[in-house]
Simulated assay, not measured.
Amino acid sequence: MPATPVADPFDALDPVARRATPRVRIAVGAAVVLFIAAVAIAALVSSAATGGGAQGTIVAGGGAPATDLGVAAASDGGASGSPRVATPPLLVHVLGAVTRPGLVELAAGARVVDAVAAAGGFTAEADPAGVNLARPVVDGEQLMVLAVGQAPPPATGGAGASSGATADGTVHLNTADVAALDTLPRIGPALAQRIIDWREANGPFTSIDQLLEVAGIGDTVFSGLADKVAP
């Protein structure tokens, strides 16, 4: 038995409607293409506006993005590392030919020139050549500024003991300051400063023979010091 032909739904339309059908199909297809194109363009514009999707990495704990770590580190004072510890000030006792003798408070890393300035500067009688203005100062140091022609005070007992000298006149190389070392025979302020510089560069003296390693101290000078100094 022959198959019954399937009726074309479009046969129900009048001839005018059937003639318009291809146009309707083209219009629908064009609308779909335009919609897809619009979505694609919007995606491209959004990607360009956000830098192509390259976003900063979030640090654990809610920190700043990785792209902003430099600013974060500067603003929080290096909070990611160990906290900064305030350096205690230095106290130096300045005596002699300065305007305001006494205790001065200095920042870490200060030098003799800073201590003299904090004490009001040299007086008219001061001998600036008698001190090394470039030398770093240490906490608890006693700095003596001599007047022109003034001899260093003897380092015996009392305050002298705090500068590295004992009551019997022996000078301890590891604690003596320039004034105490300057009391030794043939040791002036310049050579006294070299002894201190050697101590700071090499560590404490363990033997008085190490004085021979200080520039300017030869056998003759050393022979006059051997019984007057101790490590």
Rank of each mutant, 00 (worst) to 15 (best):
P101R: 15
A86S: 12
V138I: 10
G157K: 12
R84N: 14
P5C: 07
P89E: 08
V59W: 06
L106S: 01
D168H: 07
L103D: 10
Q55L: 08
L173P: 01
A215W: 09
G70H: 07
S80L: 13
I187T: 00
A201C: 09
G52N: 03
E105W: 11
E200Y: 04
P136G: 04
L34S: 02
A179G: 09
T156K: 13
T166R: 14
T67V: 10
P5N: 11
Q55D: 05
V32L: 15
D219L: 11
T50Q: 07
G188V: 07
T156D: 06
V24L: 12
P154N: 11
S223H: 05
V28R: 08
F10Y: 13
V45M: 07
A129F: 12
A60E: 09
I26T: 05
P189H: 09
R25N: 03
V113Q: 12
A129V: 07
V92K: 00
T50K: 06
S163N: 11
D168T: 15
K228S: 10
P153G: 03
F205P: 00
F122N: 06
A108S: 14
T175H: 15
I196E: 00
T220A: 15
G51H: 04
R199S: 07
R23M: 05
A31I: 09
P153E: 13
L103G: 04
P15L: 14
P89L: 09
A115W: 01
A30T: 03
G218T: 05
V71G: 11
L69R: 14
A107R: 15
V59S: 05
A43H: 07
G121E: 08
L13M: 12
A40Q: 02
G51W: 07
Q142M: 14
A38T: 04
T206M: 14
G109R: 13
G77L: 07
M144H: 04
A230E: 05
G63Q: 06
G56A: 08
V214H: 00
